[in-house]
Design a protein around this nucleic acid. Structure first.
Lengths: 341, 341
DNA sequence: TTGTAAGCGTTATCAA
DNA sequence: TTGATAACGCTTACAA
């Protein structure tokens, strides 16, 4: 009675094959690979040899199906073209990969609804956990996480509701840069912003606080544009701003891209930076140190944030979290003063 | 006889459950979802309703295991911090996601051995195909692909051995920029390079050809450094180069990062660009248009390359490839002349 | 410490 | 057009 042969993935070497060749059963091979301590050293040695010989590659689908654990983490970031998130990704990778976890990357394109759609789509992979950028998601988002009991760690900002997070206070950072400009003697300080995601708006809050405290907040100097950030946009917005407010003596750009465009435009227009106009950015991208003059900015520990968030998530996955401790990790920021202020 | 209950992933709603609720069998649900034409429209409608109602989410592991197809593509890129590859990634994503394919991203860190290790590791996911950066891999690499009959498309360069690829002639691009500098009247043209991956070396070949043809090739002006590219390195290498060869009248940097650092250093040192020294880059990153003066460079269609490579791979996966046609897609490049030359 | 039996959720095969 | 049955390769539960 010939059984019907089905397509086989990979080389077709299974645990069963390895077991036969080593004179043991499949389950022993499984143990030798995943819980070495439960198998006699000599036996384990032999099994590993056979694995090598036959070129056995474990089948992850089968493993997932049987164990109901995917060893997979879904990472949601707003953009691939923003170095900030790529750096965080690199940090995540540095932790997840050695731990045997796979990361699935979802690009939300700064959209709540795309984010939700991605979550739904990636649910098919039954990720063990999530790393999410920011604290604000679509309403259904957290409901789904709760229904499925999916652990998540939030990155880049600090939560005030007990959700585990790793990041920095965007508000404090915005305030810090604004105070720096005040200390440099500026009073007509504009906030130039694009994209207007939650982090950009929190920096705006910090900017407002600092200026209000100093008694020089002027809402007319908040120059906001929802378009995606770019150097070109930075240059354009600077032109607009100066046309409307020629008395402006400093521009705090919500990120380095805008700031680099703004500085270049000043060069083109012969506006002296920082004498006539101080310019500040945010994030400390590599290029910030190489403009003329070099750009003052806020350095953010993106790689460390990604790595710490991944570590925190792994702890949760491995059940090591104290339900008591609120896990909100503030990794801070650093003001990089350079020539532009 | 109570069966032992096991951990269930996700919500625990299975095809079987959906089938029961809709009064059909599981297999019919499967067909309703994946081959609609094989199910009565009315029935299909009903099934979809139940799917919605119960919040059914297909289990990808089970699907993979049963069908021996993972709908997953492994993408190998040398670096996450280089925009060039991120752009390609975005192009890939734009094709793969709508087609229902998942991309697994492997970061090789510019290392053949890491690349091989990644391939081995990701084999566990039994990817249906590969998108690989560059043409040069470790020896075992292609052997594994052959053993497993894994289709692969190579990106960023043009193969001369029939392997399917999408990219541009790095050599021709290197030659084109060099000829441009010659046309601008330069004769002492240096090649400033870092990282020294295969693409950088091919551009070097193009540079050599063009200069030899013009009778002004001087090997002493090839300034190569294996360290990772950075703006800092570009500035440093420029200093070294000029110290050794003060008569140099143009510098062709192997990428924009180096070039941006070099231009900034010229500004700092008061070297007139391009009058005294012309500077050219490669890739046309966003920042290239915003240096002072703006950087002349070679624009490369990264997004399009990623997208086309993904499309080509999908064709192979769906068995639409003509074995006859050699699939080597040259998407070309464009010389962007700006102020620096 | 090792093995046996059963089941994870889906799809391929074959039959109705 | 639909369904019954048997895999897919692995791991859990339990027994030896």
């Amino acid at each position: 009675m010939s059984r019907k042969p089905r397509l086989r993935s990979g080389t077709g070497v299974t645990m069963h094959d390895v077991g036969q060749a080593a004179g043991v059963s499949a389950i022993t091979v499984s143990r030798a690979l995943h819980s070495p301590e439960r198998v006699t050293p000599a036996l384990r040695e032999k099994i590993l040899q056979v694995v090598e010989q036959l070129g056995y590659v474990p089948n992850r689908s089968a493993r997932q199906l049987a164990s109901a654990r995917s060893h997979t983490v879904l990472v949601l970031i707003p953009s691939l073209s923003n170095t900030v998130f790529i750096d965080a990704l690199a940090g995540i990778e540095s932790v997840l990969q050695p731990a045997g976890y796979q990361m699935l990357i979802g690009n939300t394109h700064y959209s709540d609804s795309e984010e939700l759609a991605l979550l739904r789509a990636y649910l098919q992979h039954s990720p063990d956990g999530l790393l999410v950028t920011g604290l604000q998601q679509a309403e259904a988002f957290s409901r789904i996480l709760q229904e499925r009991q999916l652990p998540a760690v939030y990155m880049m900002d600090l939560s005030d509701d007990g959700r585990p997070c790793v990041g920095l206070s965007q508000e404090a950072a915005g305030a810090a840069m604004t105070r720096h400009l005040l200390e440099r003697g500026r009073r007509r300080i504009a906030y130039l912003a694009a994209q207007l995601d939650e982090r950009v708006l929190k920096r705006l809050q910090g900017y407002r606080q600092a200026l209000s405290a100093a008694g020089c907040h002027d809402p007319a100097l908040e120059w906001l544009n929802p378009a995606p950030s770019s150097m070109q946009l930075g240059a354009d917005l600077l032109d607009q701003l100066l046309a409307a407010h020629p008395d402006c003596d400093a521009v705090f750009c919500c990120n380095d891209d805008l700031a680099i465009g703004a500085i270049a435009r000043c060069q083109q227009r012969g506006i002296a930076v920082p004498t006539q106009l101080a310019i500040a950015g945010f994030n400390d991208l590599q290029a910030a140190a190489w403009t003329t003059p070099a750009l003052s900015t806020i350095a953010t520990p993106r790689f460390a944030i990604g790595a710490a968030a991944a570590r925190l998530l792994l702890q949760q996955l491995q059940g090591q979290q104290d339900a008591s401790a609120s896990h909100c990790l503030d990794l801070g920021f650093q003001l990089q003063q350079r020539g532009s202020t």
